[in-house]
Design a protein around this nucleic acid. Structure first.
Lengths: 343, 343
DNA sequence: AATGAATATGGAAGCGCTTCCAGAAAATGT
DNA sequence: ACATTTTCTGGAAGCGCTTCCATATTCATT
């Protein structure tokens, strides 16, 4: 079972060395950007590499150098645009750096042992953790013990010694709540996301705080639990809207559920935003596709992943710097058609 | 920059050999399931492996054995549940087989050169191609040239010598047509998808055959050509519905166009499904978001990916068998609100 | 001009595995 | 009984790279 062989069947570092007129050691140095290589030799090596269309053998490098050039991306469930964007951003950045993404699922059926095997078999140069895996104590401990450079994306709790990238969920949700209030809404419902996610909790907290700060009461009947899934949004919306008194606005913890709210409102003959304003969070593609389009908060998902990879690269290159301070990414408030003044 | 080191810092095949009282060659044979190893020695090796908690070094294996145990998953855009499901399925199956998924983006900004680098650097044991990458002639040619075992998922066109996994479009469309007929519809319209795609042709053929089998005539004025795009669905619907005699149901080759049919019907004051039943295909997220929600056909995305990996494994294990015959997967009929009995 | 650092280079020893090869042991045929 | 074939086993040579070590060469300091 031979593996792919390109147009240049077997160009090795030795070939490059011969063509460049230097030793393999020197070629290796140039390839790895080490210092102590004279400029002219460096140029010669680069010319030879280009001429031969040389591709270093990843496996030889990994074996000899104890680095894998693979970065692991662990997640619980790859569904949804959130993780897709994450993956996309990570791929982009990795491509620039010559690294590759190995995806690995970590859900209910996954044992710690499987993850440990993943780590010791693949020996990834680094690992990216997405929510909610990024808050799994067992995984974090395993990673720390094995000293695998790790960046957590949108984690809920602190874990000393591990870098993280997150958005300011609290601030964003606070801002959205204020937006609704500024439109004259006093009766506002809220759909909570998967409570396992720290962001879901932060958004809820911000909502409550912003209401309180505006001197508005929160009607607990209008607070429903969702799971970030579209279907759960349906249920939540029905629950909130079934009573004889209804809120004039609903702030959903994410767009998927917000879209479901619009559908339910439509089914009930409630006009949006005439009879009900709906606000979302995340700005997934669906947000601008539904009618009316969703007022929402855009999370720079791709940029976050890119930043996370960048952080990883920095760690790999030695600068251990301040790992404990999370990198906060800015969010963007997107005003669209689903929110309007309270009549 | 040390890479992860587990609890057993450095258990090599030599350690296993010593403990088992055999040579490394024999250990290697057992590990790779080769024949010509006596049963007692095999047992001894297995015991030693378990006792030492030995993990073979992936990179040493890859370097020496010219296999990578990595399988590449190429896609155009990771957004959407379709590819998420795909990935999930592929991961599951790979885990069972001890392989891992390396994801790689192939969009507008990607050059062929980048993909070739991906292939020659990672030397994946196999590659999975998702639509629309699976119909990219250039990629296919590159893969074929490098002899990388490849499985295409839901390809539109044939490409000799390359395995593929697809749904049984004919069967599914036949089933949907029968559904419409069972609701009492006799006058049924059909919107054809992009005729360049094999699936569009199969769906049309199934529609005609099912009608014929039920003894129903197909009115050619009610058959319109679309391109799978939403906008083309609008035009097709208008064309079908403009006459003085109208069908009582329209089967659209995909959900995008079916959604357009609903919009057009709405504009014409035709109620769905009261005055017109509408059926789609694909079960895209929009299908459950539109009102009324679309009766459609869902592809078993995860299962398809699992099957694709299975096919790949079979190819890697030597059985080259019949690569040209696509593996057909069963689909799921989703009854929603857009189809109803013919009044 | 002499001394020690800083800079630059290559030889060669692995990294942990697979596999070729040669040879031993067991099973088969005559 | 011997000659073949088949089954089993281990030694040792790589796979293509990184890196330790020893050796040159240059540069700044006295």
């Amino acid at each position: 079972m031979a593996v792919a062989d390109g147009k240049n069947p077997k160009t090795t570092i030795a070939d490059v060395a011969r063509v460049a007129g230097v030793s393999v050691t020197t070629v290796s140095r140039v390839l790895n950007g080490e210092k102590y290589v004279r400029e002219d030799k460096k140029k010669a090596v680069e010319r030879a590499v280009a001429k031969l269309d040389y591709q270093p053998n990843l496996y030889a490098r990994s074996l000899a150098g104890d680095r894998s050039y693979l970065i692991g991306l662990l997640f619980d469930d790859p569904r949804g645009d959130y993780l897709s964007g994450m993956q996309r951003g990570a791929m982009h950045r990795c491509r620039e750096e010559g690294y590759h993404i190995v995806v690995e699922l970590f859900d209910r059926t996954t044992t710690l042992d499987q993850i440990e095997q993943f780590l010791s078999k693949l020996r990834p140069s680094g690992v990216l953790l997405t929510p909610p895996v990024c808050d799994n104590k067992v995984i974090l401990a395993a990673l720390a013990r094995k000293k695998v450079p790790t960046v957590r994306i949108s984690p809920s709790e602190d874990f000393p010694g591990m870098a993280s990238v997150k958005i300011d969920d609290y601030h964003a949700a606070y801002q959205m709540t204020e937006h609704l209030i500024s439109l004259g809404h006093k009766d506002i419902g809220f759909i909570i996301g998967d409570i396992e996610h720290a962001d879901a909790r932060a958004r809820l907290r911000a909502f409550r705080d912003a209401m309180k700060a505006a001197g508005l009461a929160v009607n607990e009947d209008w607070i429903a639990q969702g799971s970030y899934q579209f279907a759960s949004g349906r249920d939540a919306a029905k629950q909130i809207l079934r009573g004889h008194t209804r809120p004039t606005a609903i702030f959903s913890s994410n767009d998927d559920m917000a879209a479901a709210v619009i559908v339910v409102a439509d089914e009930m003959g409630l006009e949006v935003p005439g009879g009900l304003s709906v606000a979302g969070f995340d700005d997934i593609p669906l947000a601008s596709a539904v009618s009316p389009s969703l007022t929402t908060i855009r999370q720079p998902v791709e940029a976050m992943a890119e930043t996370a990879v960048g952080r990883l690269m920095a760690m790999l290159k030695g600068g251990d710097s301040d790992v404990d301070t999370p990198i906060l990414m800015p969010v963007e408030f997107i005003k669209r058609a689903s929110t309007g003044t309270c009549k």
